[in-house]
Amino acid sequence: MVNFNGEILKDETLYLNIENRGLRYGDALFETIRFVTDEVILWEEHYLRLMSSMRILRMQIPMEFTMEYLESQIKSVAASNGLDQARIRLTIYRNNGGLYTPKSNSVSFVIEATPLSSPFFMLSEKPYEAELFKDFKVNADMLSTLKTNNRILNVVGSVFAKENDYDTCLLLNGEKQVVEGLNGNLFLVKGNSIKTPPLKDGCVNGIIRTQVIKMVEKLESFVLEEASISPFELQKADELFITNSIMGIQPITKYRKKNFSIETSKELIGKLNAVIRLQKHV
């Protein structure tokens, strides 16, 4: 079951057509969200990012798009699918009409829910190998920081990773700086320093990225740095990990000939779960 503009429909219902601008031009935004026990996790952060992104893309924000309204729509589709914990995808797209120039800036939304394996972020200790993807580059501009449907770079990079038996790839921008992983933001640990690329380098403005930055800044045992990362730094690191809203923290255990520790990832994921539990009860 999906939620299309507030109406619960069966998955096979033909509610989109060939004129859909998300399909034609990638004229759409999305949020991937955790839903656990009637709670939309980090919902305020997701909502504010979505509203900001809609303004940047000059989409018309409907009057009913309050936090409470969209939250209720997420909960309704989770309930309709009988899910107590779910991975939610909320997609906003500009309505049909026009070529590159739309006839209208009005929008529609679709909300999907699929089962989530655990109510908490669980750290995987399985081998997880990464490689650089050099064929295409991330543009270091504001559009790259948004969660838009223009993810063809991530798709082609994922095909490359699968063809070469890598678990993920790391993306570069035009200045040959490491920007992020195919599936989330990148953090590099060296000694007591934790480093992540700044938004100006083109990385997605990730919800968990922000949470980890705030969390690490409060820890006396680490120093947080938002700074560009050179490919040469990767093999000198003690640890590398990727963050996103579904898995939380994913350690990279191998890059080329270098094997990495996962001790910092273990420490941080426990703290991340604690931060989110605390926010739920505020």
Rank of each mutant, 00 (worst) to 15 (best):
V2N: 05
N3S: 09
F4W: 08
N5F: 05
K10I: 02
L14A: 10
L14W: 05
L14I: 11
Y15I: 14
I18L: 10
I18V: 14
I18N: 07
L23V: 09
D27G: 11
A28M: 14
F30I: 13
I33T: 15
R34N: 14
D38E: 14
V40A: 15
V40Y: 10
I41Q: 15
L42M: 15
W43T: 11
W43N: 06
W43P: 01
E45H: 13
M51G: 08
I56M: 10
L57H: 04
L57N: 04
R58F: 08
R58V: 04
R58H: 10
M59V: 07
P62I: 07
P62M: 06
M63C: 02
T66Y: 13
E68H: 09
Q73H: 13
Q73C: 07
Q73W: 02
I74H: 04
S80G: 14
S80Y: 07
L83Y: 11
D84H: 13
R89S: 12
L90R: 09
L90H: 05
T91D: 03
T91R: 11
I92N: 02
I92Y: 07
Y93F: 13
N95R: 05
N96K: 08
N96L: 06
Y100H: 03
T101E: 09
S106N: 08
V107R: 05
T114N: 12
F121T: 04
L132M: 00
F133P: 00
F133Y: 12
A140F: 08
L143G: 05
T145Y: 15
T145A: 14
T145S: 15
K147C: 15
N150W: 13
I152Q: 14
L153P: 11
N154L: 13
V156Q: 06
S158T: 10
S158H: 12
F160K: 01
K162C: 05
Y166P: 00
D167H: 08
D167T: 02
T168I: 01
L170E: 00
L171C: 01
L172G: 00
E180V: 04
G181S: 01
L186R: 01
L188G: 00
G191L: 04
N192T: 07
K195S: 02
P197S: 03
P198T: 01
K200V: 03
D201S: 05
C203D: 02
V204N: 03
G206N: 06
I208N: 13
R209D: 03
Q211K: 13
V212R: 09
I213D: 03
K214A: 04
E217A: 03
E220N: 10
S221C: 04
F222L: 05
L224F: 12
E225Q: 07
A227R: 12
A227G: 04
S228D: 05
S228Q: 11
F232A: 04
E233T: 01
Q235K: 10
K236Q: 08
D238V: 03
D238S: 06
F241H: 02
N244R: 09
S245V: 13
M247P: 12
M247D: 15
Q250E: 07
P251M: 02
I252K: 00
K254R: 06
K254C: 02
Y255S: 00
T264Q: 06
I269C: 12
I269H: 13
I276G: 09
R277K: 15
Q279G: 14
Q279M: 15
H281S: 11
V282S: 11
